[in-house]
Write a protein that binds this DNA or RNA. Sequence first.
DNA 1: TTTTGAGTTGTTCGA
DNA 2: GTCGAACAACTCAAA
Length: 446
Amino acid sequence: MTTRILWFRRDLRLGDHPALLAAADGARVLPLFVLDPRLAAPGPRLDRLLASLAALRDATSEALVIRSGDPASVVPTVAREVGAHAVHVSAESTPYGRRRDALVRERLRGEGVEFVETGSPYAVTPGRVRNRTGDPYRVFTPFLHAWRDHGWRAPAGLADVAWVRDVDSLALPQHPQVDAGERAALERWQSFLAEDLDGYATDRDRPDLDSTSRLSVALKYGEIHPRTLLADLLDVAADAAPADIERYVTELAWREFHADVLHHAPNSTRDDLRPTLRRMPHDPESELVDAWRAGRTGFPFVDAGMRQLLHEGWMHNRVRMVTASFLVKDLHVRWTLGARHFLDHLIDGDIASNTHNWQWAAGTGTDAAPYFRIFNPVRQGLRFDPSGDYVRRWIPELRHLDGATAHEPWRHADGHRHGYPERIIDHAQERREALARLTEVKEHSR
DNA sequence: TTTTGAGTTGTTCGA
DNA sequence: GTCGAACAACTCAAA
């Protein structure tokens, strides 16, 4: 029986895994993960990855081999060691992933080893959805329709795999024990379906209710495949409100849309997707930006989000929009600076979603949105955290304020008693400033 | 080819 | 307090 390698990357699961099925078909499989120093900087994200790898090693009955280094040399080395004839992967679509895979493919070819891509981390592989003229979509709604029409295959079952054993592997570095891996992801998903799908369409915007599925990390590492989620949503459709199902499907479609946009515009991680604002004057790094990062802007909703990010490596979606708007429109800082900070701290940090949600917030992205859409950080807080619970959860200095009053400590005599900072800017004034800069840019480019 | 309709997530102001 | 209008202009997608 021949030996093949299944090189795991963003697909740390055994179920519904087309590349694993392809590898296991008539061959023994060596499961391999390469800790790439370019992607695995120490921190919460690496900790989360290691926890997922521990779960995967467990699921493969300890067969998983972990190596560290540049995949372009590590993967061919392991192939040589075990006499593999092929390396199977799920196709990658990020700029770095594609460059890396092209190089690995090249090196393997030199040794007579096949590099086989099957499936991807998406229901529809990025690049597949096209409009009538064969071009990619740049507007979400038409993409959504075409994506749906394109369809996806049903989830594949669990592979019956003969693992190759006893190959040298790194021991997993020490890491905190957290809920991770395929089984945890499936359990989380089932619990979401049972408890939080009902009302999702509206509750998803409420950080105080914490009623999202929290599957972004599992999706990032491929502990669960979106195909599985889509199939299950179809199954429960008879018992659930169409609006709730529709909304979840749409959120998955956003993830696929952003991957598609990045696939077609790999430079968009740094460059504006639309060059219309290229003359926009931006403010440089400053103590204001430091305050934003630290969650000390004096705007409770913004600060709660930024502190949640630092503490949990995760932030509620609504709050990501508000904090991003604050950096870009109130502090007039270029979006790439915020995108980098998010990517440094988010354990679900996904290059495609992060990049294009930031571009959206900055008005340089796929959204041909009205430029006057500037979030009012206080108003957003009052509207989406009406209980004030979210703000109090993350800002101890405001816990003495009841209900929604926690959103406006400056209106209360003892609001700043426990050291909560004063507002670092005047929102109304910076809003006018943002609009003025935009107007000026438009006039210059005319 | 030209035309037409539409585009995730908002805020403010004045009646 | 509520409600509708104004805030502009452009690009995309489809007919």
